[in-house]
Write a protein that binds this DNA or RNA. Structure first.
Lengths: 184, 184
DNA sequence: GCTTTTAGCTAACGACATTAGCTGAACCTG
DNA sequence: CAGGTTCAGCTAATGTCGTTAGCTAAAAGC
C-alpha cells in the first residue's frame, strides 16, 4: 500500500480538472478519487466533505481569475486595460467553465471572499484609468463586473441562440463599456 | 387511495416552489413529492426523470421571464422601456432565484429555446426605441442581456461584497445602458 | 530499533434516483 | 348500471454516491 502523497491542494486541483472536463454537475468524490488513483474515502483525510471541496475549488477559481486579471492589465491603462481585463476574464471563464461555475452559488467563506476582493481590486484598477466620480465608483465597478460575468456565463451556458460571431459581439461590448465609462 | 389528480404541469409547479424556497441544489424528487402529498415514485408517471423535471422547470422559468418582460415593457419606448425591462428582469430573478438558476446550465431543448427566443424578442423590442445600426443589433442585444443577467445572478449568488445600496447601483446601470445605447 | 502518527483501505449506512410490479380508482362501453 | 379497461399512485427493491468507523501499514520522530 504505497502512499499517494496527497494533500488538500492536490485534491482540489484534481477536482478542478474534473469540473472543467465533465462539468460542474459531474463533480463527484468518486471521479476525483479515481483521477488521483485512490479510493473514495481516502479523500476525507484531506477535505471535510464534498461541500468543502466545492468551497475550496471556488476559492481556487476566484484566485486564479484574480491572478489572470492582474497579469493581463499589468502596465496598461484606460481602454487598453479595460480590453485586457475583459478578454482575460472571458478567456478564463471559457477555458475553465466548471471551475468558475462553482463560485456561483458558493456560500460566504473568508477565503473566497478574499479572492473575490482581489478580483474586484483588479477591476477597480481598470476603472482608475477613467475619470469617474468617486460616488459612482461602486456602481461602475458592479456594472463592469456584471457585464463581463454575464456575457461569459451566458456564452458558456446555452451560448447565444443565433450564430453571429461571438468574438465580434464581445469586442463591441468592450467598446460599449469604454465609451460609457469615458463620458459621465 | 384517493387520487391526487396530478399532471406534468402540477409537478413542475411544485418543483418551482421547492427550488425557490430551498434553493436549486435542494431540488429533489422527494421534496417535490412531499409537497404534492404523494410518494416519490408516483412522480415518474408525469416526468421521466429529475433531469427532465429540471428541463421543464427551466422552460417554465424562461417562459415566465418572457411574459414578465413583455408585460412590463408594454406601451413604453426608449429609456422607459429599457428601465421597465431591466427592473422586471431583476425582480423576476430575485423573486425566483432557484427557478432561474435551473436555466443556466440547462441543455439545449426546443421548449427552452422557444421560451428563450421570446425573452430575446422582448429585449429586441426595447432596442427598437434606440437608433441602432442594424449591423450592431445583435451585439447590442447580447450586451444588454449579458448585463442584466450578470447583475441579477451576481446579486442573488454571493451578493456584492460591500454594502452600498444595490438598488442604487442598478439604477445607475440602467442609466449607463441608456446613455450608451443612445449615442452615435 | 521502537514508538507514534496518520494516509489510505475495506466495510457499512443513509439519502436519493430510478425500475418493476401490484392495486384499486376513474373512466369507458354496452 | 354492470363489466371491463386504463392508469395514477403505492410498496418493494436496486444502484449510485456521500459519509463514517475502524483497521493496517507507511512514514516520521525518538
Amino acid at each position: 500500500m504505497p502512499r499517494a502523497g496527497l494533500d488538500r491542494a492536490a485534491v482540489i486541483a484534481a477536482a478542478a480538472e474534473v469540473a472543467d472536463e465533465r462539468g460542474f454537475g459531474q463533480l463527484t468524490m468518486g471521479l476525483v478519487a479515481e483521477r488521483l488513483g485512490v479510493r473514495t474515502p481516502s479523500l476525507y483525510k484531506h477535505v471535510e466533505s464534498l461541500a468543502a471541496l466545492r468551497q475550496g475549488l471556488a476559492a481556487l477559481a476566484m484566485t486564479e481569475l484574480g491572478d489572470a486579471l492582474r497579469d493581463a492589465t499589468q502596465g496598461y491603462a484606460g481602454r487598453d486595460a479595460l480590453a485586457a481585463a475583459a478578454r482575460a476574464m472571458r478567456s478564463y471563464l471559457t477555458e475553465h467553465p466548471g471551475r468558475y461555475a462553482v463560485t456561483v452559488g458558493a456560500v460566504v467563506d473568508p477565503e473566497l471572499d478574499a479572492a473575490g476582493a482581489r478580483v474586484v481590486e483588479s477591476l477597480a484598477a481598470v476603472l482608475r484609468g477613467y475619470r469617474i466620480d468617486p460616488a459612482e465608483q461602486t456602481h461602475a465597478l458592479r456594472t463592469l463586473r456584471s457585464t463581463l460575468h454575464g456575457f461569459a456565463t451566458l456564452q458558456t451556458a446555452h451560448g447565444f441562440q443565433w450564430n453571429a460571431d461571438t468574438d465580434q459581439s464581445f469586442e463591441w461590448l468592450i467598446d460599449f463599456l469604454d465609451r460609457g465609462l469615458r463620458r459621465p
